[in-house]
Amino acid sequence: MIASVPDVADWIDAALQLEASPYRADAERERLGSDLDFYGASVGIVRGTVRDAGRRYPELGHDEVTALSSELWRRPVFERRLAAVVLLQSHARELIGTDLTRIEGFVREGRMPELVDLLAVDVVGPMLRALDRRGRARAELVLDRWARDPDVWLRRAAVLAALRELKAGGIAVDHDRLERRLRSAQDAASIADPALQDAVDRVRATLE
C-alpha cells in the first residue's frame, strides 16, 4: 500500500524526535535566535532521516514530494522545516517552475540563512539548471520579481540562486541580468541590510 503524505511526514517527525536532545535544542535556539521549536536533532540526522524516508517510500513522485515538503514545513519546528528543504534539495532537478510559488512561501517564513540559503542555492539553483529554455526564462522572471520585493529574505534568495552555477563556471548565467538583479535587490532596501549585503558580497566575489 502506498503511504499517504501525512503518514510519511509522521514517520519523519517520529524519527527526528527519537534523536531529540533538549541540550542541543536549547543551544540551537540560542545560536539561531529563533522563536521556532527545536527537537535538538543534528543536521546530519535530519539529512539521514530524509534519505531513509526516500528509501522507505520510493513511490513518492513530484506531487507527493512537494506536498510532503509543505506538510513538514507546516509545523514551526526547525528540524521539520530543515527536512522539508533537504527533501526539495534531493529532488531539485524534478521541480518545475510553478514550484517557485511554494518555495517563495518557505523563504518568506524561513527568515534565517540556515533555511533560506539552502532553498536558494541548493534547491532553486539546481532547479533552474534542469529547466528547459522556456521554463528557465519564466523562472528567471520570478527571481527578478523576488529581487524587487520588500522582503529582504526573498531578495537574498534571488541573489543567491545563481551562486552554485557561478561556482561551476557560470556558462548558462546571464551576467548582465544578474548584475541588474543585484542592483535591484539593493535598491529595494530602504536601509542597508547585513543579510542582503552578505549575499551580494558572496555573489560578487564569485563574479570577480
Results as ranks from 00 to 15, higher is better:
L32W: 10
L32R: 14
D35L: 04
D35I: 08
F38A: 04
V43N: 07
G44H: 08
G44Y: 01
I45R: 13
V46M: 00
V46G: 00
V46H: 02
V50F: 10
V50W: 11
V50R: 11
R51A: 15
A53E: 04
Y57R: 11
Y57H: 14
P58H: 11
D63V: 14
E64Y: 10
E64K: 13
A67C: 06
L72T: 08
L72D: 04
L72S: 09
W73S: 08
W73R: 10
V77C: 09
F78E: 00
R80E: 05
R81A: 03
L82D: 00
L82P: 05
L82N: 06
A84S: 15
A84M: 09
V85F: 09
V85C: 12
V85R: 07
V85E: 03
V86Y: 13
L87I: 02
S90W: 07
H91F: 09
H91C: 10
A92N: 03
E94G: 15
L95C: 10
D99G: 11
R102M: 12
G105A: 08
G110C: 01
R111M: 01
P113S: 01
E114P: 06
L119Y: 10
L119M: 10
A120D: 08
V123E: 02
V124H: 06
P126M: 00
P126K: 00
L128C: 09
L128E: 08
R129D: 15
D132T: 05
D132M: 03
D132L: 04
R133Y: 10
R134H: 12
G135A: 02
R136M: 05
A139C: 12
D144A: 14
D144S: 13
R145E: 15
W146F: 08
W146T: 10
P150C: 01
V152R: 12
W153Q: 06
L154G: 03
A158H: 08
A158T: 05
A162G: 09
L163Q: 11
L163T: 14
R164W: 12
E165T: 15
E165P: 14
E165S: 15
E165F: 13
